[in-house]
Structures are given as structure tokens and as C-alpha cells.
Design a protein around this nucleic acid. Structure first.
Lengths: 233, 233
DNA sequence: AATGTCTTTATGTGCGTACATAATAATCTG
DNA sequence: CAGATTATTATGTACGCACATAAAGACATT
């Protein structure tokens, strides 16, 4: 019985994963170091490194210099969510996407909004309310605030056919964002817009995007009942 | 003005990100190839490759062989969620974790459960209902089904002090899992257990874990109102 | 014009070496 | 013996080269 050689990092990764799943290397166990594994697998250390680094990124391994590599005891499931443009999400389900602007105004936002966006309390922002449709059925209602001092061009945009979602992607640079998911009860207005029973449970996504230290936009999306956000570990 | 040299992949990554954010390379634009960037940055192509690969993984760039690398037009936000053990989640908020087993039985699961778990309709599974507490307040209610034919040891476990969550981590190998997030209305039983108003909107996490082709466990977690799942882009 | 083949090109990856770095273990020092 | 100092060690990364591979584009063929 001769051990096969593992010529690429993917096969090394597969073999390491197999050993973890088979409990040859149980949770918490220290695994051999890169150099030894390279000899065993018949490949270069850099190839082993690539495989182990990838496994560490997806949460299966914990690595520390000098201390070595061990199998994660509590594999903190790192689920990667793809927060796509809503239109793409709808079209991927094979449905026809529709968009309706409900209201557009320039106003001083409520305190919680200016608070999270870190704008001055008296600053006016552009507020949009819109409805996203899938096959003419309400899919999600959007409530958005745009910081026009950061994105001055937005003030001239009607947003009546192109959703702010997509316009901002193209025109507003951002460096990072915060996302929060929660469940909320539909209020009177939301249930009317979505055409659902009052007090229904709605899935909410709150997102704030930033250009370095200044906020670009804040959006709350409320999805019609039945919506599920899926992912894999 | 001489251009500085970028000696490590992180600084190359930072510089590329800077150009993307500054719109020197606008969304959709084709950026120079690795070899040219390596010359410009004064480093090896492999260093540029490492930086660009990393940016592609986090969604800022789209790469295709021969076609080249371009700035993602719709940066599909890849949010990485850390689905931790609930106890850790609670303790990280500085609260004291508590656990209560509500019920434990062996029963034939309802059809939707055996359906998603791909077990035979007549197969009995181990069912657990439990409550997770933070500082003596209800935090989440758990409804779990365990495939005892895959994890026979579970049949002998009382699960009265140690949550199935943590026991399974240590004893049940798994290869992958599916997760879904949604919003649901609390039913009579849930609202009693959580001590909340009936029909409240609850954040739900449904998770099925698999050992290759067979399901290990399916769990639904309903979180008390106010729960938010946060992440960053 | 439609189809199939070949060339070109940019990314993807492997290898071996070298050195950097963090963290532990061993040692020295007051 | 406590605390500071110095090895040791495993991971982290840079480099330069080589070749693999996917896919666009050019070209030839029908």
C-alpha cells in the first residue's frame, strides 16, 4: 500500500477535510506541521500552505504561528451571504422584476437615522420609498435615505424607473458597509403597500454603506412573508 | 514624483482598493494585467496575484482567464456570518448563559422535517425542545431533530445540562450544512415559552447539517424579539 | 455566413528557496 | 523565584520560474 501523491492544493484540501470528517483528526487536535505534510503528500510546502490557509478561512482549522494548526473545536460556521441587487435576485427565480417609486422627498430624517448615519441632526437627506415586484406581486418594500452631500448627483435623479439600489452602485463609491438582519412586525403602512395582513412578520435587512468615515446611504428592506435568505456552510 | 513600491500583498491590495474607491478604476473597468501591475508596483507577479485573488474572493473584482480582471459592476456584497455556538454568542454580550431542556422524545417527525432531512417517512428521530437564556431572560427557543441512525450515541444522552448544539459539535461529524433565515409569527406555544405577546415577529434560523449524503440534525432557532444578526461587507 | 481549428494571452497554480514574524520554550539574571 | 532575555519553531509571505488552462480572437474550411 503506497500512499498516493497529492499534486495540487485542492486535493490536499480534500484529503485534510476527509481526515477531519473521518475524525482521524478530531476537533481540537493538533495536526502535523506544513513541512511534514508536504513530505507525506509529496508536494511543496507552499501547496500545503495554500490548502490549510483556505481551510482556515472557511473555519475548519485554527492556525497560529509557532503553536501550529489544529482542527477547530467549534467550527464557527462562516456562512457567506451574497447580498445581490434585488432585480438579479428576482430574475434568478425566473420571475419578472418590477419597480415602483412610492415617494421621493428631501427631509430631515428621524433621529435614529441621522444617528446611525452620523449626519448632523438638522441636515436634510433624500428619502425614497419604493416597491420591488416579482411577477407583479409585492416582493419587498424599500425605505432609503441618501446623503446628498456625499452623492450630490442623486439630488437630480428622479429614481422613477431605475432603483436607487442600482443607481448608487454605479455612481456612489463606498468602502464598506454594515448589514443587520432582523424580524419586524409590519405596520399599517407597510402592510398596505405589500398587500398583506397587518402585523405580519417581515424579514428586514438594514444596510448602511460608508465612504470611509461618511455614510453614503441607509436602507431598510422589508420582504413579503415567505421570504427566506439561504446560504451554505 | 516617484511611485512608491509595494512590497507585500496587503499593500498592493490596499492600493488597488484605493483606486477602485477613488473611481480611478470605475465599476466594470478592465484593470491592467498582473504582469504589468507587478512591474508598476515593483513586486513579483505572484504577489499581485495574491492581492487580486483576495479581492476577487471578497467580491470587488471579477476575474476570468484570458479575459482579464475587471472591477465588479455590482459588487455582490459577500457578507460572512459567524454562526457561533449560542452560549458563546450570549457570553460575548457579557450576559450569563442558561439552558433549559423543555422536552425530549423519540418520534416520527412531521413530513416536512423528514422531507428536508431525507429520512424515510416512518423513521423515528430524536426530538429536543430547549430554551436558551441570557441573564435569565429567554433568548431563543430551539426545536431540534437528530438522526440517531447516524449519531447513535445521541440516544443515550439526556441533553439536560449540555445543549445538543455543543454536544453534536464534539460528537457528530458533518461535512456541510444549509442555513436559512426568515421571519415567522410566534405561535401559541412559542410565545408562552419565550414569554412574549402572541403573534410577535420572530427571527428564525433553520439549519440542516449533513454528513455527506445523510442528514445529521435539523434545528430551528426562534429568537426573542429584538434579536439582530449583524455583519459587515 | 456558419462552423470548426489554431493561436494568443491572462489568469491559475506548482515548486524551491529565502526570510519575516509571532509565540512558545528555554535560559539567564537580579 | 520572579522577571527579563534569548533561542527555537511553525506559520506567513515574497520571489522567480515554469507550466497548465480557459477563453477570446484570428483564421481556415465548408
Amino acid at each position: 500500500m503506497n500512499s498516493p501523491t497529492f499534486r495540487n492544493w485542492q486535493s490536499v484540501q480534500d484529503e485534510v477535510l476527509r481526515r477531519i470528517h473521518a475524525r482521524e483528526w478530531p476537533p481540537g487536535a493538533l495536526i502535523p506541521n506544513e513541512a511534514d505534510l508536504a513530505i507525506e503528500f509529496g508536494c511543496a510546502r507552499s501547496t500545503v500552505n495554500r490548502a490549510l490557509r483556505s481551510l482556515a478561512e472557511s473555519g475548519w482549522l485554527d492556525r497560529k504561528r509557532k503553536a501550529g494548526t489544529r482542527v477547530a473545536a467549534q467550527p464557527v460556521a462562516k456562512a457567506t451571504l451574497d447580498i445581490a441587487v434585488i432585480r438579479h435576485e428576482v430574475e434568478e427565480h425566473g420571475a419578472t422584476y418590477g419597480y415602483q417609486l412610492i415617494s421621493r422627498s428631501v427631509a430631515v430624517p428621524p433621529a435614529p437615522v441621522s444617528g446611525t448615519m452620523k449626519t448632523r441632526a438638522q441636515d436634510k437627506l433624500l428619502n425614497l420609498r419604493a416597491l420591488h415586484l416579482a411577477d407583479d406581486a409585492a416582493y419587498a418594500v424599500e425605505d432609503r435615505w441618501i446623503n446628498t452631500s456625499v452623492v450630490p448627483d442623486a439630488a437630480a435623479e428622479p429614481f422613477d424607473v431605475l432603483s436607487a439600489n442600482e443607481w448608487l452602485m454605479q455612481h456612489a463609491p463606498y468602502t464598506h458597509g454594515d448589514i443587520a438582519f432582523s424580524a419586524v412586525q409590519a405596520d399599517q403602512q407597510d402592510s398596505e403597500v405589500l398587500g398583506i395582513a397587518p402585523h405580519s412578520a417581515l424579514f428586514a435587512i438594514d444596510r448602511v454603506t460608508w465612504d470611509n468615515a461618511v455614510s453614503v446611504t441607509k436602507v431598510r428592506l422589508l420582504f413579503a412573508p415567505g421570504y427566506k435568505l439561504r446560504t451554505q456552510i
